[in-house]
């Protein structure tokens, strides 16, 4: 576990975010800061990380926990290095999302919600990501992979493995 502390540079960014809001309304910065925390602290929000964010914003830790547990992008348990999020709603479903999920599940030996034993991958199913015209699709970090075929999925998994990078919503084009 990394030290739960933001770098001076990150703190500067956070101060900028807080300054967007009127005086006394700094709680508005909570969700943006939680995204930063998740990205910096190994892809998930530990109780320590949430307490730290509460301290920065001078609010009760329970307020952070309430918010973090409401939104589906926040992970409250450790995740793999690479989180694969497959859309399984509506048009993606019509266009074969089930096959994509089952294929990834089989290939990695995990079910949605689980992490591979080597800690490399977590598979998540997610609700409509607004990519219905290019269905089926999945998301790794901030990147959308659309018009999926099972071959494309395989190539993607291989690329994730060999890149050795961690997925993060804050990083665009993780695989270049």
């Amino acid at each position: 576990m990394k030290n739960i502390e933001f770098s001076e540079e990150t703190l500067k960014t956070i101060r900028e975010i807080i300054n967007r809001y009127p005086e006394g309304k700094h709680k508005s910065a909570l969700i943006p800061i939680l995204h930063i925390a998740q990205s910096e602290f190994e892809g998930w929000l530990s109780p320590e990380a949430m307490s730290y964010v509460a301290e920065i914003l001078n609010i009760e830790p329970v307020e952070v926990f309430e918010v973090a547990s409401f939104y589906s992008m926040f992970n409250l348990k450790p995740v793999g290095k690479c989180v694969i999020e497959v859309c399984h709603t509506s048009s993606c479903w019509l266009m074969g999302a089930e096959d994509v999920i089952n294929h990834i599940g089989k290939r990695l030996g995990i079910k949605p919600g689980q992490t591979t034993s080597d800690g490399l991958f977590t598979l998540k199913t997610v609700e409509c990501l607004g990519s219905c015209g290019t269905a089926p699709m999945l998301m790794v970090g901030a990147d959308f992979y659309e018009n999926l075929t099972l071959e494309k999925v395989d190539t993607l998994i291989d690329a994730c493995k060999s890149s050795g990078k961690s997925s993060s919503y804050l990083v665009d084009k993780m695989l270049g």
Partner: peptide, 29 residues
């Protein structure tokens, strides 16, 4: 005029305008 982009974190309900405002205030949607 200052214009900012605020980011959500995965909740369909935040498309409802008052849930969106709650979320923008840093609360549950």
């Amino acid at each position: 005029l200052d214009l900012y982009v605020q980011v959500g974190a995965g909740a369909y309900i935040c498309g409802e305008e008052t849930a969106l405002l709650e979320s923008l205030e840093g609360k549950r949607g």
